[in-house]
Design a protein around this nucleic acid. Structure first.
Lengths: 230, 230
DNA sequence: TATGCACTGATTGAATACAATTTTTAATTA
DNA sequence: TAATTAAAAATTGTATTCAATCAGTGCATA
């Protein structure tokens, strides 16, 4: 999906990953200078990445004031979660109409991964939990639906970073299992219902504890996300 | 929604408008140089606009090959229309659950505009027809839903530019009227059904005549879209 | 004639440079 | 002390510059 300039992609990707994994928390400033230094590129290049992240809603880019990690309001949070319900309902309905054999196969493979890293590698575990939803969307075969789901899952991570204290992937795993079972049975109604319940649970967990924090040293955090090029 | 750099916005907006109104047809190259000259800005500024348009799917940006107006394939066309059905169904369902009084009021006002310019100003007429759908989405109060609909309506214009010869807004007007009536009655099922039928009609018209063309003088076309500053 | 290869010109990729704006700091005054 | 203002520093906006890549032309060769 991302094609343009070779050099700005790693910046885009690392920032995105860092935001999703909540290493960069909502509100944190993203100065072009320091980011450029971290990645060894010029501001021009960084800016391209920031423009894109802004378009995706992960970054807030204000004229003359630079970029910072987006700080979703509680209203936006509800809005986004409602949209997510709509999109993932569509995913469920489409999947149940398809040939479920190969779909179930890759879903179960993914689930095995989720199970493997549960209680072992939290970061990875959280990432996998999100990627489960992206995989579901991709399996519909619809590029645009997969894109939208991908985008909205990212924004939900941002919301969790802002409002929830820390999210355990534990309970999510059982629910993922149930969703797969419903798809396997070709029972769209049940699949939709399970997904709805699952997402509602995630949303509810986010409504407590306004866990304000922020204030971090960006370059140190980002350094962990730099993908070394040869 | 668009915040970043002051100077690149007009470029973005003009290009977008030109693409939507099919003045810039799918496949047309968009060289940074000539666009910059047209708008009196540097390539840096143009590039920002192009990155954004690429993110929105209206422009295809390839490394070292520059930008061109996106050329949706027939598969993408189906994909996008299906997604649009999903989104606009959601719009209908939400609107019917709301207080329809103020909604109906602004919809009727819009419809009056559509009627006014029908057979008078084709370009404006087409634009208004598209904006009807965007208005519907905005009336749900959901920022993100409105955004998605806005984006997808643009991409549908692109598809029409590629596959349909010319689209009359004529039949659309009656259908818009029916949709409004269904919402006014609070009849979600009927609203969804009308919308589905309406969109299906638009889609069907797009499936005939692979009207290949392209090859235009960009700067001349774009000149009409430059918004004079001061 | 067709194919391959250097060469030229055009276009993009990305860093640097400078102008404009904001933010910070410090000093002044009520 | 608190509020205001002025100057300095930091950061962004945008143009310019140079390097790298691509596209097209013409010539050589099979």
């Amino acid at each position: 999906m991302y094609k343009s300039s070779t050099r700005s992609f790693p910046v885009y990707d690392s920032l995105r990953q860092a935001i999703i994994e909540q290493a960069l928390k909502p509100g944190v400033k993203l100065p072009e200078d320091s980011i450029g230094e971290t990645f060894g590129v010029s501001r021009t290049t960084v800016r391209n990445a920031l423009v894109r992240l802004d378009a995706e809603g992960l970054v807030d880019l204000q004229p003359n004031r630079g970029a910072s990690v987006a700080v979703p309001t509680i209203e936006e949070a509800y809005d986004i979660f409602e949209m997510r319900q709509c999109l993932e309902r569509e995913v469920m309905q489409r999947l149940c109409k398809m040939d479920t054999k190969p779909i179930i196969k890759s879903l179960k493979a993914h689930l095995a991964q989720e199970r493997k890293y549960l209680d072992v590698d939290t970061t990875r575990s959280i990432r996998l939990a999100g990627e489960f939803h992206i995989l579901l969307a991709e399996l519909t075969g619809s590029k645009i639906l997969a894109n939208y789901v991908n985008e909205i899952v990212s924004r939900c991570s941002l919301i969790l970073a802002r409002f929830a204290q820390a999210h355990s992937a534990k309970c999510g795993l059982d629910e993922h299992t149930e969703i797969i079972a419903a798809i396997e049975a070709g029972d769209a109604e049940r699949a939709v219902s399970h997904m709805h319940h699952h997402l509602h649970g995630v949303q509810d967990r986010a409504l407590l504890n306004p866990d304000e924090e922020g204030k971090n040293d960006i370059s140190e955090i980002l350094a962990r996300y730099v993908t070394p090029s040869t």
